[in-house]
Structures are given as structure tokens and as C-alpha cells.
Design a protein around this nucleic acid. Sequence first.
DNA 1: TTGAAAGCGGTACCAT
DNA 2: ATGGTACCGCTTTCAA
Lengths: 345, 345
Amino acid sequence: MPTSKDVAAAAGVSQSTVSYVMSGKRPISEKTRLRVEAAIEQLTYQPNAGARALASRKSQVIGLVISITPEAHLGSLMEFIAVIAATARRHDYDVLLVTDEEGSQGLERVVGQQLCDGLILMQVEADDERIPVVRKLRVPVVFIGIPNDSAGLNCIDADFARAGELCVEEMAAAGHTSGVIIGWRPRLVGSRLNYVGRFLGGAEAAAERLNVKIKHVPAAPDRASVEAAVEACIAEADGRPAFVSPDATVLELLPRILRERGLEPGKDASVIGVGPTPEALIELQESTVLDIQPKVVSRRAVEILFSLMQADNPDRGGLLELIPPLVTHRYGTADPHVPAAQPIH
Amino acid sequence: MPTSKDVAAAAGVSQSTVSYVMSGKRPISEKTRLRVEAAIEQLTYQPNAGARALASRKSQVIGLVISITPEAHLGSLMEFIAVIAATARRHDYDVLLVTDEEGSQGLERVVGQQLCDGLILMQVEADDERIPVVRKLRVPVVFIGIPNDSAGLNCIDADFARAGELCVEEMAAAGHTSGVIIGWRPRLVGSRLNYVGRFLGGAEAAAERLNVKIKHVPAAPDRASVEAAVEACIAEADGRPAFVSPDATVLELLPRILRERGLEPGKDASVIGVGPTPEALIELQESTVLDIQPKVVSRRAVEILFSLMQADNPDRGGLLELIPPLVTHRYGTADPHVPAAQPIH
DNA sequence: TTGAAAGCGGTACCAT
DNA sequence: ATGGTACCGCTTTCAA
């Protein structure tokens, strides 16, 4: 592998000149710049990342922290990751994948070893054990998800409260006066998946406003559990039942389960929900589906992180940004409309 | 951040001794080792990755190259990634995510900058444009997927030929004398997704052997396309139709499409297929599903890469390993059985 | 068994 | 506008 020294020799300049040509941090005469660039080209020189990181104290890498739990919807997760990686590259950064198998120690490790200049934490839980650790880290961190104690942290997430509202509005517009929200087990909702709580909050507010009734039925994201919830709802429903859920897996199951019971979604029953992957959308064309815009959320997460890193202001923070959901599918049509944006700064 | 110099000072030894304590590359007296370890602990010292990479010429990072195409099943992809990352960590390596947005240049970049010591390429296509590039790289590379010209390359994949056989055997065992394989568009099969070709090969061999008829119907992995294929098959089927597919998305669609046409999968029609994610399995309980064992494939990919890197033998290669599929679900039961393993070395 | 010192390949300050 | 050079923090050879 050629080094910048080789380039310098080939171009007949000093090593520092090569460095300055690459970084543009000081003016270089047209003539020498061309000579250096030619030498770089000719030798197919690429700067050594380790040496650069050592000298500049910047790795040009961001750490992406994901957790593979049984609750995680892998397709959705992948969608986030893809956008984050692509956005990072556009800013000339690479992405190091950190799984939570190491727990919070993994965070301390990648930062301690100075493998990366900043972190994005995904699937942030209500009472996330990583938070106290993160507060001590000396690099900027962006959370995807909003923990209970978010003071001083940079968080971004889909606006699940708004999504809850939209779902209930949709439900009312479809002529229902009551409906059922299939959520998660209470324990999970309280301690971990607090977006469900936000969703319920928005849904309840809308229900009150529109004078419709909603009932929250906890369930696990598996077939048996959702079936049980559905049975219960059908039993006590008068007229067409309506099902609402903030969970992609539940949403994938609902149409099937209803059909097995002779109810055609969009006709005999309404299915309204949030957050599926494109694949799931294929399955859900006869339902109302809110897209929580993972692409926007993850792109913004990266952008926020970069602004923090550029500002060289590691401990500044306390940004909360909510991305409004889109209604992407409505009973068979794919006619997206954008609700009023309500980012909070 | 404390450096190894700080540790040395605290322990009253030289910097090199600290290094040797950490690497174990030369004998250290019990006494000094304990002193150094105490100092490390006390200062919470972590070695600087860049400096280490620079001095040792090893980054302890592997590059994981993925491509986000419309055909990619994100959930399956995520499953691979998770296992690869976890396995890498167990060998004390980190994972750098390389998306193919940069194309083959991305590979040249991460290797050229010496960001990583080896690569794993996923979703390798029949006539993959990355292959000529990879052949020139000076680091070990493992392919997940088998290109047409695999000479001298280290490839690993699920045994789709065997999967094709198993599917047809299953079909025959379920009493069918004929069936339909829903595959991909011919153009894709030829130039790109050649696992489909291998699947078909195995299926055809088994069909001949068992004296059943199979027909290959190309389709895109979307609803309309699969529906058209299904319609055609139902029209010309005598008795219960059987549907076989090597594609996860198609497999997710099939049960629904059949039910809409009044056919209950597992009763009025058979659905037999390969490779879905755990989420999809929920949907497919009434079908026969072969698991292509992404966990095994990806774990082996990492292990092979490490053995290549340890051997310090970058250009050695030409390993082909096939992981046999498991039958994980059979018409409602979850009773896995393992076919005879047939790895090829 | 341990220490001193020469790199590894860049960056950026201080000169000119 | 350019060159010389002192680091950055670790590994490893050579010496003791």
C-alpha cells in the first residue's frame, strides 16, 4: 500500500503538502495541487484510516447500537439501518455496528477505544439501562426513541401520539363509535416500549374529542395472543368491530385472523395501524396504515449527530424531534397524505 | 483518556511491558502483571484502536457488505447481520457496515483505507460485478451466495438444490402428482439470483426421481404477479393444487391469496417453501416451511473468514460450503427434522 | 524478566 | 505557498 510519503516523493513535494492538498486546510497553488493529485491517482493512494484517526483524533466512524430482542421487528430495524448507513456515507462517515449483546459495556468499549466519534442508539426503551452510561460518554449521542428521563439527551422518534390520534380519527371517519387498541403487555409498556404509551395517550385524547370509545387490550405479538384479543372484541362488539394497533407484527396478523373468522377487513371490520415495513404493506392493502417514516427518522438522527459532532460540542443536547406519521394506505388505495408537521425543537 | 503510557507510569513499568501484559506475547512475572492489571483497572484504560491498528497493521474489524435492493427481504437480511455481528464480537472483532450504494468502489475504499482486515459479501449474485474487484483485494473475503464463476473464492450458502429436492419430496408425500414452482423473472434468475436456479435444479431432479410433474412459473415478488401465477395454476390443476417457492415474500403472500380464492392452505392446497423469517413463520403455520438456516450460514461465514485471517493467508481460497435446510414447520406442527448434512469442501 | 527506542502513517504547528 | 518536524498511542525489535 502506498503512503502519503510515496505520494510526496512522486509529486516532488513534502508530505505535509500532500496532507494539505487532501484536506484543503490551506491554500495550495494550482500547479502543485495538480501534481499531487496526479500522483495520488497514479499510485491509487488511499489514506490509512488508523493513522489518520490517531493524528486527527477523529475516526470518521459512527457507532450504530441496535438490540436484537424477540420483540424487535427485524424488517423495520433493517430499514432504519440502511438509511443511517447511506446518510452517514454521504457525510463521509462509516458505520460500525454495535449489538447490545455486550450490553452497555459495548458502548463504553467503542467510545473508550475511540473507534467512533458519535453514537446512534436505536430501540431506546422507557427506562433504558444505557442512559446512565451514555450520560458519562464524551461523544455526542442521538437516541431513536424517547426514554422517560430524556432531559439533556438528543432524542428523535416518530410521533406516536399523533399516530394514535390519526388512528382514532380514521376509526371515527370509518363510522365506528367504538374500537379496540391491541397493545403490548402492561409490563413491557411501562418499563420498555413507551411509544405504545404515547400512542395510547394520543388515541385517548382523540377518542374523547370525537366522542368515541376505545378500549386497550394488551397482547403479545404472537398469533395466539392476538387471536384471544380478537375473540374477546368480537364477542362484545355491536356492529362492525374496529382494531387499532401500534405494532407491526400485530398488524400483520390481524387481517388473517379476522378472515379466518369470516370478517373481511375493510368491510366487516376495520384494521387501522402503524409502522409496517414495505413488505407488510403488501399484506395490508385493505387496511388503513400509518407510515411512521423510518426513513425520515433515521436520516434526521444522522443529521443531528453530525451537527453535534461538527459543533465540537459533545455535551450540548436536549433536542427532541418528532416526525409526524403519514397515512400511506387507506382501504386499498395507496394515496399518501401528509398531516401537519409538528416537529418540536 | 488515559494511554498506555499513563498505565506504565502508574504501575512503575515501561510502556512495552503494558503492551505485553495486554497481548500476552511474552512472559511477564506474576508480580508486575498484577501491578499493571491493577493500574489498567484503576485508570479504566482502553487501548486506542487507531494507534493499535497503525502499529499492528490489523484493525480488528471486518467489513460486512450488504445491498439494499427492491428484491431484498429486509427481515431475512437483518437476521444474517445480527448473527454475523455477534459472532464477530465473540472473536474480538467489530463489524463495519458497507452498503453497496458506493458500488464496488466501497470495497476498494474500506480495504484501501485499511479500515478492515477482511470482508463478508452478502447477496452475492450469479454474475456479480464485485467479483473482479474482490479478486484483486489483498484481504480475505467470504461470499454468502454462490456466483457462477466461484473458482478460487470462498463461498458459503444454504443448499438450495437440496431445498428444492425436499420441497418436491414433501409435495409428493402430501399426495400431489404435480405442482407449480413460483420463481422469479427469468432475467433475474439468469443474471442475478442464481440460488433460484439451484433450487429448480434440485426440484427437477426430485420430480423425475419421484415421477411427479412440476412446472416453473416466473413471477415478481408482488401481489399482482403472484396472484396471476396462482390463477393460472388453479385453472389447469386437477384436484388439489400444490405451490412451491424459494422466495420468502412469495411465501408470505401465498396463503392469503389462496384463502381469498376459497382454498385453505394445507387442506385444499399445499404451500411448500423456503427461507422465511421468524415473523413470516407465524403466518405460515399451515404450510410446510424449510428453514435455510441463516444463523448457521452466517456464523460459518464469519468462522471461515477468521480462519483465513488467522492463517495470514489472504489469497488462499476456493472453499464451498453448503448448509442443508431444515424442515421447521409442517402443516401446523413445529416439528423440525434435520436432513443429512452435506457440506462440500 | 524487563526497558529503550524505532517505527506505523498521518496531522498541524512553526518556520521560511 | 511550501517544507521540516514534533507529535498522536501502540507494537515490536534489540539490548540488557
